[in-house]
Every structure is written in structure tokens, then in C-alpha cells.
Amino acid sequence: MSEHVVELTVNGQTHLAKVEGRKTLADLLREDCRLTGTHLGCEHGVCGACTVIVDGAAVRSCLMLAVQADGSEVTTIEGIAPGNGELSSVQQAFRECHGLQCGFCTPGFIVSIESFLDANPHPSQEEILENISGNLCRCTGYQGIIKAVSLAIELRDKAAAPPELVDDGGVVRGAV
């Protein structure tokens, strides 16, 4: 099978890879770039776990070929935080709101929600639900995820300085 050279920028870094025409963007990111935070939950475009941002738009990297991303700028979960050792508003909110359990679907949710809130900073509750309905989670029953979106909006509004990347074991709520 013929191979193609693909050059793309991932999380600000240039990557050059030689790929078969059939290789998906997801596999390129995971195998050639070794960015394994992008997860494959269905490989048919329904679950959203593989969502990445390509040239500003959230896409399912399982449905996009690597060659289609030639020349593109890609942001994956590894590049979603504003800086090294920091967390994005959505990452922070997922942690505060117990928006994840097993964590497998989480990168796709976080990338999708970041992209959604960039485009629509003050969505209605209906818009929020509609947006996150594009991703599947099997652990949380979506309860923490729905809360996390609201908190992320608040955090973005406050433009709160992202916290240090430390495990302080902090107690976030009182006893029930």
C-alpha cells in the first residue's frame, strides 16, 4: 500500500510522518506521535472519545484520515491545558464535579466541551445537553459531567488562574 508523507502541527509541535492512505488521524496521533490520551471507543464516529480539535473544529479523529490532516493544526487532550502544569477550565471542573470515573471517555468530553465553550461561552442548559450528548459515558450517568460544564463556564467567566498541578488531597465538600 502506498505511503504518504504528512506534516502537521500537534499541540504546537511539528510532526512529520509517513503513513498509509488508510491510516486514521487517531492512529497517527496515538502511534506516530505517541499521544495516547486520544482514545478509541467505537471507531465509527458515535462515542466521541477520540475527539480532537483540527483547525479550530472539534472532529472525530477515528473518522478522519491522517492524510486529510496534512498541513493542519491539531490540539489533543495533551495540549488542551493553557500551560505546562496547569489545567484548563474544563479539566479543572471535571475534577471538582466528579465528572469522570474510569476516565476512558474523558479526553473526548473535555476536548469537545472546550471547543463548544470557545464557540458559545454562555450556552443554555438545552444547548449544553445537546452538545454533550455527542459523547458517550458509561460510568457517571452524566451527572458530574453536566455539573462540570456549568462550573467550567463560571471558571472561564472568572478567568480564574489555573491551579498548580499538585495533588493536595483537598477536601472539596463537607460530609453528607
Binding site: G37, E78, I80, A81, H98, L100, G170, V172, A175
Partner: peptide, 20 residues
């Protein structure tokens, strides 16, 4: 207490390590 999860930091940043 609803202590924040130890697991989360790696999982929300794409640094989990699943078998794949």
C-alpha cells in the same frame, strides 16, 4: 469526606495508561 480523586489528574490530562 468528598475528597478529590487521586486518579483524576492523569485521566483528565490524557496521561492515563490503559492497556492500549
Amino acid at each position: 469526606q468528598s475528597v478529590r480523586r487521586r486518579e483524576d489528574l492523569r485521566l483528565i490530562t490524557g496521561n492515563g495508561r490503559y492497556v492500549e
